[in-house]
């Protein structure tokens, strides 16, 4: 699977690079030029202010205002660059994986759809979703996946009586939903390995020690689950954890499949690297490739049941 990934990535990276490098470089250098000009103007203004007003407070005030102006311009220009990065680079990456898939930087999955999966046993207060990829799998099922962040707000009462709030991230990563074409006769829940579930009645002991090391499989029909989880699919689940450092959690119930996997903020341009840095783009491609390969194979196997 790793070889297939490398082959596919090499081709896609070359395409992305040839399509986007000129525009990205032009945007970045125009940003830098504007920032440099503004910086020079602000320096000149600050240098001129002191001899005119001969006041340290006025100079300090002018410096603070200059910094605010500089940061504001940087943020505006950066958001334009980010928009361009997402529209050009990430769209090309997604299209490179499958030409029929779409990417929408500002689209997200609804909170109600996330709740349907019942992944978080813990209550969360805030929900945020963006960077949506959607399309139709080779076997005809529609799917969508997007970045999701759920947070819990903890309120504390200080000794002086005032309240303090802290944010606790419950989940940050990619969440997805597949509308299956037919009702699947079993319920499946694949999650990361937990000692608590080891002796659970519905847990299935899989015949791969490596899979067992990372995952727990719970179902209401063990034989059907084994029919779905053949050795080639098990290999894909293992490859996911080896390459993305995160396990995939998957739930199947009736005619719906939900999946999610933790990762840091996705599809953002790098802060200190070239936007088309090969390793950086590879990291994003892995986040698309490995989970979708798992989803595609799992759906195909389930359709055979």
């Amino acid at each position: 699977m790793e070889n297939e990934f490398e082959e596919s990535f090499e081709k896609i990276y070359n395409d992305v690079y040839s399509k986007c490098s000129e525009n990205l470089k032009a945007e970045k250098s125009s940003n830098n030029k504007i920032l440099l000009i503004v910086l020079l103007i602000l320096i000149v203004i600050n240098v001129c202010i002191y001899p005119v007003f001969k006041s340290g407070i006025v100079s300090l005030f002018a410096f603070v205002i200059s910094m605010i102006i500089l940061i504001t311009i940087h943020v505006i220009r950066n958001s334009q660059y980010k928009k361009m990065y997402k529209t050009e680079v990430i769209t090309s990456l997604v299209k490179g994986y499958n030409d029929t898939y779409d990417y929408n930087a500002y689209g997200g999955i609804l909170r109600s759809e996330y709740n349907m999966a019942k992944f978080d046993s813990m209550y969360y207060d805030e929900y945020f979703s963006e960077d949506q990829i959607n399309g139709t799998l080779d076997s005809g099922e529609n799917f969508k996946m997007s970045e999701v962040v759920t947070k819990k707000i903890n309120r504390y009462r200080e000794s002086d009586g005032s309240y303090r709030e802290t944010e606790e991230v419950i989940f940050r990563g990619i969440f997805g939903k597949v509308d299956l074409k037919k009702e699947i006769p079993i319920k499946i829940h694949v999650s990361s390995n937990s000692a608590f579930r080891k002796f659970s009645k519905d847990r299935v002991e899989m015949d791969s020690a490596e899979f067992e090391k990372y995952y727990d499989c719970v179902t209401d029909d063990k034989v059907k689950l084994m029919q779905v989880f053949t050795s080639d699919l098990i290999e894909k689940y293992i490859a996911m954890i080896k390459n993305n450092k995160h396990s995939i959690e998957l739930k199947v119930e009736d005619n719906l499949m939900f999946f999610r996997y933790g990762c840091q903020s996705v599809f953002e341009p790098p802060a200190f690297k070239d936007g088309l840095d090969k390793d950086f783009i590879k990291k994003y491609y892995k986040l698309i490739y490995y989970p979708l390969e798992i989803i595609k194979s799992t759906v195909e196997k389930m359709n055979e049941l």
Partner: peptide
Amino acid sequence: ENQLQAARRVYNGDVTL
């Protein structure tokens, strides 16, 4: 046969545990 194969794997998994 596929179901039998899967049932054998379930059995072997339980026996291994």
